[in-house]
Design a protein around this nucleic acid. Structure first.
Lengths: 207, 207
DNA sequence: ATAGATACATACATCCACGTATGTATAATG
DNA sequence: CATTATACATACGTGGATGTATGTATCTAT
């Protein structure tokens, strides 16, 4: 068999990752075997062991893909200076949720991470990793609330930390429930309602 | 080896289930092998295969344990007729969350269900099962909101279904995040704050 | 009391997935 | 243009978990 050019090698690498998403999605992380991933990618296990050390290494690579994507979305949104930061954040959350419904690849990866993955043993390290990126997104969310506080859109007795965590919990819950049972609610349509319900309790009460 | 009396047989059965919780918690569901469970329970795999058909059968038995426990708590609480149903529900949620922090066994089982389990292949059926019990708890939650609506504690334009689902999402998110990273927040102490944040957006706005 | 059912322990066969070692044809490099 | 590193494919050895088959001692029932 022929050695490929560097571009082709990178192509097989991403082909392996794409195949891994599918196989993980179908069989779960622990249930997926490298043979199936290789087959789906049109290569052999040899190719996988060339590009990755083992299954966990593949999983880690998928992690980076998603993390960077989400962070990117939030950071770009933060560059805008919407006159109403709370409304801006609400819109962002709706957009993030709708994206999960519409972007099939993202939907699959999140499904793997949240319902088709067993975080024990060697996989436990990824909990720390996810925790780290969670803290990052929380830090970004708090920037919105900080802007809102400066514009006196928040009650004075609202604890920003509690607020930020609550939003994170709410989003997490929506995503989890939706991935576990996509029929429960359509995020594309109903995300605005849920976010509206949450933000009703955020705005300052009229005095 | 001696045949046990019926009582003793039941005792080994629960011993196997108790051991399964520990082993599942330590190694994950797919990572756990029956040999380890048997060892922890002080029996051999023979005993397990006598009481259960396979690993999934054990998992199913653990399911019933937890489901019944939670439903019981809510149903008993619903028997009380608190003058402020929203306050009652808020208190109930706080109690449910605190219980997760304090009841080690419950904490372990939930950890297994939500972060140490891979719902694919044969395990996928349990998503339906969890969905069913989720619908049940949602139905119970909506009873509180119905009472609140009758007492005009809710805004007229509040959609009860959205509200109930939102609460369910919020609780789910808190539990998930907490189990994935217990250090993120202490439920025993902070659950009241989070639930307060949520219910702030539920009560009717003063006109 | 004894015959059968019960509650396991032990032993066996099987298979799948993993990691590694090796082979090899081609790109990259000087 | 020769050499070396690359990018895989193929082949091999290994172990661990599973399900089942069988053995057996005691409880239970008549």
């Amino acid at each position: 068999m022929a050695k490929k050019t560097k571009e082709e090698a990178l192509a097989t690498r991403t082909a392996i990752l794409d195949a891994a998403i599918d196989i993980f999605y179908e069989n779960g992380v622990t249930g997926a075997c490298l043979e199936n991933i290789a087959e789906r990618a049109g290569v052999t296990r040899g190719a996988i062991y060339w590009h990755f050390r083992n299954k966990l290494d593949i999983f880690e690579a998928l992690h980076e893909r998603l993390d960077l994507s989400i962070m990117d979305t939030i950071l770009k949104d933060l560059e805008n200076n919407h006159p109403d930061p709370l409304q801006q954040l609400e819109n962002l959350c709706v957009a993030l949720l709708a994206d999960i419904e519409n972007d099939l690849s993202k939907h699959k990866i999140l499904s793997v991470f949240l319902v088709k993955c067993d975080y024990s043993g060697d996989m436990a390290v990824f909990l720390d990793r996810q925790h780290a990126s969670k803290l990052k997104s929380i830090a970004l969310f708090s920037r919105y609330f900080e802007r809102a506080r400066q514009q006196h859109h928040l009650d004075d007795n609202t604890d920003p930390h509690t607020l930020t965590l609550s939003l994170s919990f709410f989003l997490t819950g929506i995503v989890h429930e939706h991935l576990r049972d996509p029929a429960l609610c359509n995020l594309d349509h109903q995300a605005p309602r849920f976010m509206r319900q949450f933000f009703k309790g955020v705005y300052r009460r009229s005095t």
